[in-house]
Design a protein around this nucleic acid. Structure first.
Length: 483
RNA sequence: GGCUCCAUCGUCUAGCCCGGUCUAGGACACGGCCCUCUCAAGGCUGAAACACGGGUUCGAAUCCCGUUGGAGCCA
């Protein structure tokens, strides 16, 4: 690409950053980073009734969490998140462009009131026709003092082509388009007009956005032409749908990116998942951020809408938790940065780092989210407060008592307290008692973790330490009736 | 309703642009087996798709047309 790439992500701050928006943001970011270009952020807050600062911060928080940093060219007016553009701070620019179009005759004042328009629309419908503005004010005499909307004068005939990186050339018959409103009679600029003016003045080279904007694009292209500005390259990426194939929304459960963070998903897993929605690189499923930047190619993005599959996301999250736990550095970060807050949320203050590490190492392959990991790893930090009722019913019987007593004596006599030694002792005793290892192990597992399922028992005993392990064993022994 | 987009296993997708290598590949989920102190993870394995109908062609998942279905935008 000859000129340097400049893209933008343009959310409207009327709610949280949802899954679809995040994927759009990611594709823009990847495209920019891949080409060494700039990635800008524009907040489309012209709908003042529905836009809130709260939403802006949530969106920025989510983007920061996902690691989608933007190039800071905008005003430095918002602390940590500075450097983005707000449409409401650009109203003067829209006004100037509107004035120019009016003077040059590319736009005209329309005195039709909303009521007029509604009536004409209904009449058209009654006749079974599709209503389009008929251009009746194109040559209307100026009526000073009368509120007027500003409409773009578009050609009556011909075809407007939207050249699109993903869909190829998409043709729209201009006869199906009409002279659309640039500025409402109350003076507020419309969405499509702001977008064009913004993209032009921000020197955006590639507009990467959701497919839901494709239908608006011919109107925008006509506006570029009226303004005499070059068009950016368009890429309309397929939308993300819910399991019912409808546009993804709250009805489908969590769609807010921050909600996923809250549930204990890793940003890396989210990014990996989003990238694979609509894009693929052969058979590869797991991508690091760097790999994505290197391999991402917008032209390889498919054109089919994708259904959001939480189960696969969960799988990816597990893969990433396991992956991070593999090397010392990742393990430490996963334990102290990612997992710790979830453990603390369980009411465990200042969890010890070595236990956090043990949790991460052992529960990474057993759980799918950090919240789940904390929950299932709780026993590392605190003794069980009760036993799984089914297991208790099965295991807390007199027959177990004798075995436990033998075991306790055996463990007391151990010089070392490591997984290998413990396993040896258990196996030895099991064969002496002529029982299966599992029969000896399960009561102990219940004592230490409160559950029937846990990470490998001997590792758990070692991680807990001799004193704590024996304490929990004796506690269970007390609970065994008889003997 | 008008316009536009989309159509490969239940889901994400590879293949489609540059027809033959496709008895259509991978992944998630699901079943079986192995491993095993539990649960997982892992390994092996099974079931599972080119929406339909016409063309074009020696040959179509791949190109063209239509139908059906889904979605989005505008109203």
């Amino acid at each position: 690409m000859a000129e340097s790439v400049r893209v933008r992500f343009a959310p409207s701050p009327t709610g949280h950053l949802h899954v679809g928006g995040a994927r759009t943001a990611l594709f823009n970011w990847l495209f920019a980073r891949h080409h060494g270009g700039a990635s800008l952020l524009r907040i489309e807050d012209t709908d003042r009734d529905r836009s809130t600062d709260e939403a802006i911060h949530q969106i920025l928080d989510a983007m920061t969490w996902l690691g989608l940093d933007w190039d800071r060219e905008g005003p430095e007016d918002d602390g940590a998140y500075a450097g983005y553009f707000r449409q409401t701070s650009r109203l003067e620019t829209y006004r100037a462009h509107a004035a120019r179009l009016l003077i040059e005759g590319r736009a005209y004042r329309c005195y039709c009131t909303p009521d007029d328009l509604d009536a004409r629309r209904e009449a058209a419908q009654a006749r079974g026709e599709t209503f389009r503005y008929d251009g009746r004010c194109r040559d209307a005499a100026p009526r000073p003092g009368v509120p007027a909307a500003l409409r773009l004068r578009i050609p009556d005939t011909g075809t407007t082509i939207v050249p699109d990186l993903i869909h190829g050339d998409v043709a729209f018959d201009r006869a199906t388009l009409d002279d659309w409103i640039l500025v409402r009679s109350d003076g507020t600029p419309t969405y499509n007009f702001c977008v064009v003016v913004d993209d032009v003045t921000m020197k955006i080279t590639h507009v990467i956005r959701g497919n839901d904007h494709l239908s608006n694009t011919p109107k925008q292209i006509l506006c570029y032409e009226a303004l005499g500005y070059p068009q950016p390259v368009f890429a309309h990426i397929p939308m993300i749908l819910g399991p019912d194939r409808k546009r993804l929304s709250k009805r489908h459960g969590a769609t807010s990116v921050l909600a996923f963070r809250d549930e204990g998903f890793l940003a890396q897993a989210m990014v990996n998942y989003f990238a694979r929605l609509g894009w693929a690189h052969g058979d590869q499923e797991i991508f690091t951020r760097d790999e994505l930047v290197r391999l991402f190619d917008i032209r390889q993005v498919g054109s089919t809408p994708a259904i959001f599959d939480r189960v696969k996301l969960e799988w990816l999250n597990q893969v990433w938790m396991k992956k991070l736990a593999e090397d010392p550095e990742g393990r430490r970060r996963l334990a102290t940065q990612e997992l710790a807050p979830y453990v603390e949320r369980l009411g465990i203050a200042a969890p010890r780092e070595e236990l956090l590490l043990a949790t991460v190492v052992n529960l990474g392959e057993r759980t799918r989210t950090l919240a789940e990991m904390a929950e299932q790893g709780r026993f590392y930090f605190v003794a069980p407060t009760g036993y799984d009722p089914v297991a208790a019913g099965k295991l807390l019987r007199p027959a177990t008592a004798a075995h436990l007593d033998r075991l306790l004596r055996r463990l007391d006599g151990l010089d070392a307290w490591d997984a290998a030694t413990l396993e040896g002792a258990f196996r030895q005793l099991a064969s002496e008692l002529e029982v299966k290892l599992v029969d000896l192990a399960q009561p102990v597992r219940l004592a230490l973790t409160g559950r029937m399922a846990s990470p490998p028992l001997f590792g758990v005993m070692a991680d807990l330490g001799r004193d704590e392990a024996l304490r929990r064993l004796r506690a269970l022994r007390q609970a065994v009736p008889g003997a």
